[in-house]
Amino acid sequence: MQKLKSEKHVHLTESVVRKLAQNRITTILEFLHEDSDKISNLTKLSLPQVLEIRSDILNKYSAPIVNGSTLFNQFSKKKVLSTGIVSLDDALDNGLPLGFITEICGLSDSGKTQLCYQVAINCVINAENTVLYINTKGDFSAVRIQKILEGMGLSHKDMALIMYKIRVVFIWTMEELIELLQKIKNKTIVIQNLSMIILDSLPCLMFQHLGDSNKTGLAYLNMMVNYSRYICDTFNIAFVCVNILTRWIEHDVSDLEDEEETVSISKEVYLERRNRCLGKYWQHIPVTVVILEKGQILMKPNGNNSQVISATVVKRNNLECYHSFTIVINDLGVTMQ
């Protein structure tokens, strides 16, 4: 907490601050916690003067008071952005929430990037929207986007316009990501009709900071979250963050006893545990979480095979839920099964 200083208030003179420090009241928090009558006796200030100082400090440092109707109006303005995938929109209560962070998570090769491609295309195809696609893996495929658009039967002119509205930027470090978000926040970088930011993916930037004893990675993650939340709320856009699901196999040996012969038998048990990356801090950041899992492959005679993806919405609008559905990934992009 900040230190008490004489310039904080007209009654907080240097002599008053010195008397408070002699009684181990050196910070604003300690001043607020202390009894007003005791402070008045220590500093020789009148009780109304002490209460005036307390009131001024609370007005400066407390969160603004918002009544219920104002808060309801703020939330009622929040809308959703349709993904263009009916089953996903139904599971997400009509689409991605605007003003908040959404997480798409899954094991490696579970279709996370393919889903992001499709959502980006659907967002801009029939609207004056722009998508900022932040790629941290260096594997963004414009060819894949083009093939999906060709499968829709679009002309080269329409394809060029759609691909132009998907702005791609390559980021390699958390410092670069924070700098980019800061420039968007300060409007140093202005993207017309920005409706969604896709970050694919965040763990690629954070892995280099895992195990930091100085908590540098956590500090970077906290800054990224604060900037992202501000951008989402101020510009009323959707923010999609790709995360990775990890698998942990735990080996357990349990003893089974035969009741008749009392023979002890050791049975090996393997338990699988799956965790979302980025630690405990991140678990409460996204308001919506979609987990993808690769399913079976649908073989076609013409060789145009499809990959079935099982998707589950485990968190929606900050509430736990369990809404499962399936999607299919093929040359035409992401479709319903």
Rank of each mutant, 00 (worst) to 15 (best):
M1C: 12
L32Y: 03
N243D: 09
S266N: 11
S55N: 15
Y322R: 15
P301I: 12
E150C: 12
L98Q: 08
N275A: 10
K77I: 06
E272L: 13
E259V: 13
D109Q: 14
T288M: 11
N129T: 08
C116E: 01
F31M: 07
V328T: 11
S62E: 10
K315R: 15
L177I: 08
K19T: 07
L12R: 06
N302P: 03
S69W: 04
L180D: 02
I297D: 05
N317Q: 12
D331Q: 13
G84H: 00
L278Y: 09
S324G: 03
L107I: 05
N275F: 13
R247L: 09
D255S: 11
T26K: 15
G295D: 05
E14T: 14
L194G: 03
E260M: 07
V314S: 15
D37V: 14
D89L: 05
P286R: 06
I189C: 01
L20T: 03
I148C: 01
Q146R: 13
D89N: 13
Q208K: 15
E320P: 06
K44Y: 09
T173R: 09
K183V: 01
E293G: 10
Y270S: 11
D93S: 15
F140M: 06
I265D: 01
C105M: 06
L332Y: 10
F31C: 03
S76T: 10
V263S: 11
A120K: 04
I39P: 04
C232Y: 03
S324T: 10
V10K: 12
L199A: 12
V334C: 08
D255K: 13
A219S: 15
C123Y: 00
S87Q: 06
D200E: 08
I189A: 05
G303T: 10
I265L: 07
V80Q: 00
S69I: 12
D35H: 10
V334R: 00
G303A: 09
N67K: 02
I309E: 01
K78I: 07
N214E: 13
N126H: 11
S46K: 15
T130V: 12
G303C: 08
L149T: 05
W248V: 07
K183R: 13
V308G: 10
L194K: 05
I231C: 01
Y117M: 04
R54F: 05
T234E: 13
I25G: 01
K294F: 04
R24V: 04
P48S: 10
L218A: 10
C123W: 00
E261Q: 12
M159N: 09
S87G: 02
L181D: 00
K3Y: 09
E250C: 08
N135I: 02
V269Q: 12
T130N: 10
L205Y: 01
L245W: 02
Y117C: 05
D139E: 15
N67S: 01
T216H: 06
L12N: 06
E52T: 08
V66A: 02
D89K: 14
M174W: 04
T27P: 03
K137Q: 14
H33C: 09
V289R: 15
D109G: 09
V86W: 03
M206K: 01
N236W: 02
N122G: 07
E260K: 14
A63S: 10
